[in-house]
Every structure is written in C-alpha cells, then in structure tokens.
C-alpha cells in the first residue's frame, strides 16, 4: 500500500495505482488518471459511464462490462472506443473503484 499525489490531493493506492478508497476520488483525479491511461480528454460520454459505475459500485467494486452496457445503453463496441483495451479495467481505474479480478 502506498500513497501518491494526484492533482494536488494525497490518496492511497495499490501497486497498480488503483485508489483504495472510492471516497478519496474527485473529478480532477479522474481527469489525471484518464491521461495516464491514454485518454487525453473526458467527454460527456466518458462521464456518463464513470458516474454510472460509481453509482452502481458494490463494496467499492466496479460493475462488470456487461452490467455497464446494460445499465447505460452504451454498446460494448462503443465502450472499447471510449476506453480502449480493457474498458472495464480502465473505467474502474479512472472512477476510483477496485480492479475487475478473478478469484486468484
């Protein structure tokens, strides 16, 4: 467990830079992490997904891609266009939620 400064705020993160506490998340942090993930600008479509995920997180864990597409009406293809390569993981990272994991 380490801490790091993101856009002027000190937050706790895991080895891969995922926020440990969703409560420490801010919109500024999201913008900063998105840049690191190769997304220079968060459009309204990005925000729609991020906000939906934060509202529908259970125990700090992000919804699955299937739940996101069903819940927001955004198709899987569009999700890949918005958050290229592993959208579920990228959204979780940007939205300050836990990474999608298997059991091991």
């Amino acid at each position: 467990m380490t801490t790091r400064m993101i856009s002027g705020k000190t937050v706790q993160v895991n080895e891969e830079g995922f926020l440990l506490s969703p409560d420490e998340w801010t919109k500024e942090i999201a913008i900063e992490i998105a840049k690191e993930e190769g997304i220079p600008e968060l459009t309204p479509a990005h925000w729609k997904v991020i906000e939906w995920c934060r509202q529908n997180a259970t125990n700090g864990r992000s919804p699955t891609l299937r739940q996101i597409t069903a819940g927001t009406g955004i198709s899987t293809k569009e999700m890949f266009a918005l958050f290229p390569k592993g959208p579920a993981k990228k959204v979780a990272h940007i939205a300050g939620l836990g990474k999608p994991e298997g059991c091991v």
């Binding site: 895991n14 080895e15 592993g86 993981k89 990474k99 999608p100 994991e101 298997g102 059991c103 091991v104």
Partner: peptide, 8 residues
C-alpha cells in the same frame, strides 16, 4: 481479465 492471475 488482465492476466491469468489477478490477485496480487
């Protein structure tokens, strides 16, 4: 998933 094993 992002790998075969995802738990650190």
């Amino acid at each position: 998933l992002s790998g075969a094993f995802t738990k650190p």
